[in-house]
């Protein structure tokens, strides 16, 4: 028998010899606790409370947060890029996000994909949007959809600026996952800059991923 068939038949044997109880007391959840979906994170998407919570949680994990109206994204991004040598972006970046930036723009896939070496050059910052943001955990979800680009863009540069329209901010984790259009895309959840708890179980920010994370929350965007 090949390994696949043998493992499957071992499992079937284990389950037939001692079938799992359908509602064993050990796993019978108290009423109302059967599904975790929608348990956590009430609060309307994009509401002021939810935005405030997102900002609070991001700052708590050492991200920098800026709020601005849609018309000022370009100038805020320009300020955040001060000192950068170049900005790497997905091909579909809105032109007005870069209105105040006069330096080099590295557009991925326009026409060639950016090389890792190019992205790793000193001073390169990445600028993207995101699919959805989860307030309660301070999490940005990137799914390589519109204005996000390939995974490597937000990984190799040491500085990531993420523009988050208020309408994309949801309260809790279940709503965040529910908002993703296609689970089979590569998906990355980002909660603060890279960090480690490996030294004495205490959190220190800044290891292999971007060490600086700026989040621009666009407050009047729909």
């Amino acid at each position: 028998m090949n390994a696949r068939d043998e493992i499957l038949s071992r499992i079937r044997r284990a389950l037939t010899a001692a079938p799992p109880a359908t509602a064993a007391p050990a796993t019978a959840a108290p009423a109302g606790a059967v599904s975790g979906a929608a348990l956590v994170g009430a609060g309307a998407a994009g509401s002021g409370d939810v935005i405030a919570l997102l900002a609070d949680r991001l700052v708590d994990y050492k991200a920098n947060v800026r709020h601005c109206p849609a018309g000022s994204v370009g100038s805020v991004v320009g300020e955040l890029l001060a000192g950068a040598t170049a900005v790497a972006t997905p091909p579909d970046i809105p032109a007005d996000w870069l209105s105040a930036w006069t330096g080099t723009v590295l557009r991925d896939g326009a026409p060639e994909p950016l090389t890792v070496a190019r992205l790793d050059a000193p001073g390169v910052a990445a600028l993207t949007g995101c699919a959805v943001a989860i307030a309660e955990t301070g999490t940005l979800i990137l799914d390589t959809g519109p204005v996000q680009g390939r995974r490597v863009l937000t990984l190799v540069p040491d500085h990531h600026i993420c523009v988050v329209p208020a309408s994309r901010v949801v309260a809790g984790v279940p709503a965040g996952f529910a908002a993703l259009p296609d689970p089979s895309r590569p998906i990355t959840l980002v909660s603060g800059p890279s960090a480690t708890s490996d030294i004495e179980l205490d959190r220190v920010e800044g290891v292999h991923g971007p060490r600086r994370l700026d989040v621009v929350i666009v407050v009047d965007a729909q």
């Binding site: 309660e136 955990t137 603060g192 890279s194």
Partner: peptide, 15 residues
């Protein structure tokens, strides 16, 4: 595990 609301990075990939 780390006592965080969410760990810094979670990656999902499908094939």
């Amino acid at each position: 595990s780390t006592g965080e609301r969410m760990n810094p990075y979670t990656s999902l990939w499908t094939g």
